[in-house]
Amino acid sequence: MPVVVALHTTAPAVGRGLGWALVGALFCSVIPNGLIWWGVRRGRLSDHHIRVREQRRTPLVYGLVSVLVGLALLVGFHAPQPVIAMVVVMFGLGLAVTVVNLVWKLSIHAAVAAGSAAVLIIVLGPNLLLAAPAVALVGWSRVQLRDHTIGQVIAGAVVGLVVAVPTFLLLR
């Protein structure tokens, strides 16, 4: 999502778009996922999906801090508004799933898939609605892997949409 939003926003300046995309991807994905992999390697987390709900809080909080650092850099260096809005959406999604996961195992994969799809539809137009089955496939895979119930997947997708759509529309 950071690559698509940044490149679309800065077109035809591909280099500039890739720079903003790199900042977004680094702080919203690479660093948080790196922290999870590090926790797995050290034996502190069950696996990279963090299937044990009680283990999710610390990596989710560190992920939120990483996103906030990235957001501060984007704002400080005057990134385009849609790129900043996208990172605010990512923070909002992270905050929502972190709060819910304190008491119930919500599907983060479904939340991110639905929220990302919604932002991409807003940015690129209604033709991207054809990608909606990808969100359903993500949810289906989480149930098939027995990582989540159907209710946890549906709740994740709803949280993703409820956070992403108004936030991005308000801030873009």
Rank of each mutant, 00 (worst) to 15 (best):
R57A: 04
P32I: 11
D147N: 11
R42I: 03
P80E: 05
G24C: 15
G160Y: 08
V61Q: 10
L169V: 13
V153S: 04
V3A: 10
D47S: 03
P133L: 12
R172M: 10
W104H: 00
I31W: 08
G125D: 14
I154E: 05
P82R: 04
L18H: 00
V162P: 05
I50F: 02
A111T: 11
D47P: 09
M1V: 11
F77D: 02
L102V: 00
R172W: 09
I154A: 10
V135F: 07
A85S: 11
G34S: 06
V165I: 15
T167W: 04
N127P: 14
I122S: 08
V158L: 15
P133K: 07
I84R: 10
G115T: 14
A136R: 10
A114S: 11
G125K: 14
R142N: 03
R42Y: 00
I50P: 12
I50Q: 01
R56P: 12
P59E: 02
V138N: 01
A85R: 12
G160A: 10
G76V: 13
S116T: 13
A118S: 13
L169Y: 00
L102F: 00
K105W: 03
A114F: 08
H148C: 03
K105R: 08
L170E: 02
W38A: 08
L130K: 03
E54G: 09
A11M: 05
L145D: 08
V5R: 05
G139S: 10
R146N: 07
N127L: 15
V5P: 14
R51A: 06
A21S: 09
V153Y: 05
V162D: 09
A96Y: 09
A11S: 14
L18W: 04
L145K: 11
A134K: 01
Q55W: 08
L120K: 01
A132S: 15
G17L: 13
D147G: 14
V100Q: 01
A113N: 08
V40C: 10
T58K: 07
L130A: 13
G43M: 13
G115F: 10
L124F: 06
L22G: 09
